[in-house]
């Protein structure tokens, strides 16, 4: 329980750092860190299949996507960067305070609301549920993947030169 709490606090701190850090590259790496910490939480909660997916896809692929976009866009000039940093600090200084105050309020409120749900233990494994009970989900995933592929193909299509 204590370890769970520490990992959850680390998750929020990593998310805060990701949002508040100045550099976009660091923010992308922070996102990978958030995913890695979420993977730890999933392993701790006995969700190993989802944890492996989270680690390989969310902590591996998505930061690479972000980093490639950042490398394809032009960086700010020194003057712009200084101005940007000032305006960012003005906009983001209150976020840690909001998170801290909201956290304290929620902890105080949670003592009143004890959510005890009935345990519905099922013997089915995640693999069985995915392949036998949730087949429509798989169909939806395939359709969405095809949609994504066509979307990328349309977005990056080279225009034909006339003449």
């Amino acid at each position: 329980m204590f370890l769970d709490l520490i990992i959850l606090i680390l998750l929020v701190i990593a998310a805060l750092w990701t949002v508040m850090t100045r550099s976009l590259l660091r923010a992308s790496l922070g996102l990978a860190l958030v995913s890695a910490i979420l993977t730890l939480i999933m392993f701790n909660m006995d969700a190993s299949l989802a944890a492996v997916f989270e680690l390989s896809v969310c902590a591996g692929l998505i930061p690479v996507l972000f980093i490639s976009v950042i490398s394809l866009t032009q960086p700010l000039t020194f003057k712009e960067a200084v101005e940007h940093m000032r305006s960012r600090m003005a906009r983001f200084w209150e976020l840690p305070l909001i998170v801290l105050i909201l956290g304290v309020i929620l902890v105080l409120l949670s003592a009143k609301f004890k959510a005890k749900l009935p345990a519905l233990e099922t013997q089915a494994s995640a693999r069985f549920v995915l392949w036998h009970l949730r087949q429509l989900d798989l169909l939806g995933q395939i359709i969405i993947l095809f949609g994504g592929v066509f979307g990328v193909a349309v977005l990056f299509k080279e225009r034909k030169k006339r003449g």
Binding site: M45, L49, A50, L117, L120, A126, V129, L130, L133, R134
Partner: peptide
């Protein structure tokens, strides 16, 4: 809920 298999399937989606 004790229904981790369904939760994992949804997370994969």
């Amino acid at each position: 809920n004790g229904n981790m298999a369904l939760a994992q399937a949804m997370v994969v989606s």
